[in-house]
Design a protein around this nucleic acid. Sequence first.
RNA 1: GCCUCAGUAGCUCAGUUGGUUAGAGCGGCGGACUGUUAAUCCGUAGGUCAAAGGUUCGAGCCCUUUCUGAGGCGCCA
Length: 477
Amino acid sequence: MIERQEIKTLLQDPPVNTRVTIMGWVRAWRGNRFMVINDGSGPETLQVVVDGERFDEETIRAIGFHACVGVTGTLAESQGAGQAVEVIAEEITIFGENDLSRYPLQPKKQSMEFLRDNAQFRMRTNTFSSVFRVRHGVAYAVNKYFHDRGYYYLHTPIITGNDAEGAGEMFRVSVLDPTNPPRTADGKIDYNQDFFGKATNLTVSGQLQAEIGAMALGKVYTFGPTFRAENSNTSRHLAEFWMIEPEIAFADIENDMDLAEDFVKYLINYCLEHYAADLQFLDERIQELEKNMKATDRRPMGLIDTLRFVVENDFARITYTEALDILLQSKTYKKGKFEFDLSWGTDLQAEHERYLVEKHFQRPVIVRDYPKDIKAFYMRQNDDGKTVAAMDVLFPYIGEVIGGSQREEREDRLRQRMAEMNVHADELEWYLQLRTFGGCPHAGFGLGFERIVQFITGMGNIRDVIPFPRAPRLAQF
RNA sequence: GCCUCAGUAGCUCAGUUGGUUAGAGCGGCGGACUGUUAAUCCGUAGGUCAAAGGUUCGAGCCCUUUCUGAGGCGCCA
């Protein structure tokens, strides 16, 4: 049996002058004497002092960058300046030598793109190990938040037979021979002979099924992988991402917005409280990165200050119509500096959202009551006949983090809207029945998990906050 | 999918108006070093200049096409 102490735990209250055993990867090997170890338990490292005369040459030679070692020795107050304590090595075990003549990583700054291509090693770096510890923290906080408030975690299907959600391109799931699929009499592919007896896809949203849960368990949430086959080439989109979708009975758009704001603030607070050292490192990383940038291109605040600011201030709340007025009154608009035109009924573009969030309000903004024609069929129609009870939460740097709505619970209105938008009611009969048989006002939203992780870690590209990103032309590892 | 920029050593980059044998730092390899903190010092190897085609006496540099990447936009979470 292997026994060891984790560095994070050891450093919380260092048991000086006791024998300890640590195991981890060598981050630095200096002067044939000082070995810096990180074991992934936290961002902290522990320095090991190696007396060359106590160990054979073979052991000393095997120590190198990112080699995997175990050390037993006495934890002592450090004689050097950079650390409080260090381990005086008595026994060294080489678990895994590292052939540096072939190893791609170096103990220096490496580009995100290079590390993305070497994802089998990138978690060994300070940046990525911090990012993925924080990612875990956010995931845990999601479950804790909902559990503590009486929500039930509902697992909605990954493979879906709904072809009617209209939420963009889907990945097909099939076991048919792609070179010679069975055909129907009129020459179309006969999905009746496929595994499920019908055409199936990977899910683009668990919302419709979550509504089933809400109409019985009251408050539910989903948290699982979601797939979009859109050819999106941006730093904010993935083909495979994780989405959190709470769905609550007896709730309107106001309840929905309150939940969204409280929830996001909770996630940020949780990380500030439990991942302070990782966030501190990520904060310093960004400052280092922005050193050579023009003042106008730098963030107005550091990472941690930004996170604190978000949790300590109310989100701005406006309607789509009010947002449009603000934009039309803006100097940017009057000087013709927006690339896209503004008129009631068209969707806000990224540049408009950024103006609202980063210039006008300088904090997160919730925009509600969008024109019905630019939103999904299931959103509840407002009394004005023009808008629906939809809401988007917009954040600085990353834009839309949450999209949600009160759902249309009136069956006749829902059927009418589906007909207008060419959504096939026959495939969604089960969904309509939630209205026919004991429905109620209800609401929910979708939070892009990677987007909030991106915001909390300050990472510029969403591909760097998921361990194995899936995007157009990218399915390695 | 669209626009812009880029692709030179393992990594990050320089390479002049087109002109001999392609440069640096880091990393690697060999050596020195018992208090280092991106350790330091000495030595050394390493390149199909993304690919194909073209212009030219001559192309890393100019032109065309393709591939790859980044940033921005669209689609959205």
